[in-house]
Each structure stands twice: as C-alpha cells, then as structure tokens.
Write a protein that binds this DNA or RNA. Structure first.
Lengths: 195, 195
DNA sequence: ATCGACTTTGACACTCAGTATCAAATAAGG
DNA sequence: CCTTATTTGATACTGAGTGTCAAAGTCGAT
C-alpha cells in the first residue's frame, strides 16, 4: 500500500534527521553557529552537502527541529485538562512537555538553550516556532470541555502570555546554569498574574 | 567639537535611512519582500548596492528599523507612570507609543503590518526586536517609583505578557482591516488577566 | 580660494546559504 | 532478475552579506 510505504519513509527520514543533528550539535557548540558551514556539517556526517540540505530546510532547523513536537504535545495536554480547571492553571500544565523535553537530559538541554541564547538567528527562529503554537493553544482553550464562548482575543493573549512565561523561565534557568528547578521558576512566572 | 560633528552625522544618516526605506516600501508591498533584491532597491533609490547595504545591515532592517524607537519610548512612559498605579495598568499605558506609531497613518500601518504578517522573515525579526524590549521594560518595572523589591522573573513575565498582548491585538487589528479601535483591542487582551 | 584631514561612495571580489536540475546509485516489488 | 521509484551527490546558479580600496565629496582652517 502506498500510504504505509510513505509512513516508513517518513520514519526513516526522521531518524536520519536526528542522527545528522546529533553529529552537527557539538560543532555548533564548539565553534559557534555562524562559523560552521553546511559543507563541514556534511563532511562530519559523511554525506554530501546536497543531501544534508535536503534534510533541513535551513541551518537553524538543524538545531531547532527537535522543538517541533512540543506545540502539538502542549495542545493535546491542554485539551485533556479537567473541565473545572481555570484557563490559566490549565495553560500552566500544558507547558509540561517543554519542561520534560529539556529535563530529559538537563546538561544537553542547557547546552541547547545556551547555543540558542548566544545566536540571534536561533532566538528569532525559535520565537517564530513558539508564535506558531499560540493560535493552536488559543483554539484548544476555546474547545476545551466547559469552555465559555466569547471573543478570541483574550484567549490569544492568555496563550501568548503562557508561552512567554515559559520563555523567560527557560532563559532564567539557563542563565543560572540549571541549578534551580525549572517547574518552580515557571510557577513563579505564572504567579505574577494571580497574586 | 568631535561629538557634535558625530551627532549631525547620525542625524543625516537617520534621514537617509528614512528616505531609502520610503522608496523601498512600495516595492516590497507590490512584489513581495523576498522577490526584491538589494540591487533593485539600490537602483530605485539612485544609490549603489554597496551604499544601500551600508545603511541597512539586512533587508529586514529596511522594513523594521522604524520600530526601533518604540522600545525606549515605552520604557520611558512606563517610568513616568504614577507610583500608586499597579504594574499591569502601567504596562498597558506603556504601549501607547506603539499604537501612536501605527495610528499616525493607519492605512500605512495596515500595509506595514500586512507585509510583516505575510513574510516569515519579517515576523521573526520583529519578534526579536520585541524580545529585546522586554528586559528594559522589566528593569523599568523594578525601578519605577514605589516598586517593591523582589525576584526578577515575575517582572519579566509581566513585561513579556504585555508585549504579547500588543502583538495579538495588532494581529487582530490588521486581520480585520483596521476597522476596530486598536486601544479597545488591547484593553480586551489586557483584561483577560484581570477578570 | 586652497590645502589637508576625514567621510562617504561605488566598484569589485569573495564566502556562504539556499534552490534547482540531472544522472548515477540504490532499494523495493513483482 | 528486471522494472520502477526513491535517494544521493555533483554541478551550477541566485542573492545576501562582508571586506577592501581608490575616487569623490565634505568641512574646517588658514
């Protein structure tokens, strides 16, 4: 069947992307994102420049594609929160996939955030990704069980603010070397709106 | 004196930038940001490609440099708010320079936001700029008259949320063709956190 | 008005990201 | 084994952004 062939192909593609990104990451950290060319990445990975470029639409994607699943995951968590829970606490719980992703291997998460933080191009692209998650979270807020109908704008604002809380918390977490608990930081950021 | 010479030089530089950007803007709107090259911009403006590039570090700057004053302006407004005013309302007032900038000529503001909205590279860069304003706003929150000392994170979160309210409001304003009042939209976004 | 120091300009060359094309290699299915 | 679809790598190209240099322009001082 053609759909199953396509499916296995995508799985293989994903695995290759992960492998290529894994070999590329140390180079970025050592020499700086801007100082590494596709040619070197290809050489280190043992494929041609053409092939490397076919797996990643841009150099930024090599670093940031691993964030892609977070948007859908956060949306799913949000939709699964109980009906009686208020929007703001529900959004707080929806950030769990992000913290889980970075806490899986904290030292690597730290290296990743550090690299992004000192590379403007990566900051910009990650923010772009986050901005793409916001409408989905807002829609999930509208569709959650027990949601009251109303205008869209406040939900967009809440979703955007929640993601911004995540951003500032991660920034602070990375700047302190990861020795504070990430979830406590996010709680602090969130509580700025409730007390 | 060398400082006054330098000052007049910077004024001249700013005027040239404004002029170059003015002639470039219609081209971007007509043909799309990515389809216009520096060579064409230079040709239309009557300067060489080299000169054009010396005035703008990147093509995105040609469109976005006009947002640069907003950060300092918003910070200044925030610092001038009365001591008894709570942080959130004060931040609401601090967004005034942004609305003023776009409402000065609404149809041009609409064209500007439209161009940005349909150009991912411009979205990303503008978000980068906004992200740069956030720490300044947070610092202003800490330094405003009557500020209570405390951890930095909540202030960063508040400042980031305020800017996000601005973003979603402008997005909504642009998507509805500018026929709703911008300040009412921002009020709606802000009130999502107070009711 | 002319000189001399400084700045701006434009021409040129260069690196690298990203796109497109095509032929050879390779894998999968019958 | 053969056919067909996919992947790969080689090559060439456009355009962004950087750097250098010599010519042109600016401005103050004499």
């Amino acid at each position: 069947m053609s759909t199953s062939r396509a499916k296995t192909r995508d799985i293989g593609r994903g695995a290759v992307r992960e492998e290529l990104a894994r070999t590329a990451f140390p180079l970025f950290c050592d020499r700086g994102f801007d100082e590494v060319t596709f040619e070197e990445l290809a050489a280190v990975s043992g494929v041609s420049r053409s092939t490397f470029l076919r797996y990643f639409g841009s150099k930024e994607e090599v670093v940031l594609f691993s964030f892609d699943p977070l948007g859908p995951q956060m949306t799913e968590v949000l939709l699964g929160r109980p009906a009686h829970e208020k929007d703001w606490p529900a959004l707080r719980h929806a950030l769990a996939p992000a913290t889980a992703f970075l806490n899986r291997d904290p030292s690597e998460g730290l290296a990743l955030l550090g690299l992004i933080g000192r590379t403007p191009a990566l900051c910009a692209r990650l923010r772009e990704k986050q901005a793409g998650w916001r409408p989905d979270l807002a829609r999930a807020l509208a569709e959650r069980p027990g949601a009251r109908p109303g205008p869209d704008l406040p939900r967009q604002a809440l979703a955007g603010a929640a993601l911004e809380c995540l951003t500032v918390s991660l920034e602070h977490w990375a700047s302190t070397g990861g020795d504070t608990d990430m979830d406590e930081l996010i709680d602090d950021a969130f509580s700025a709106f409730t007390d």
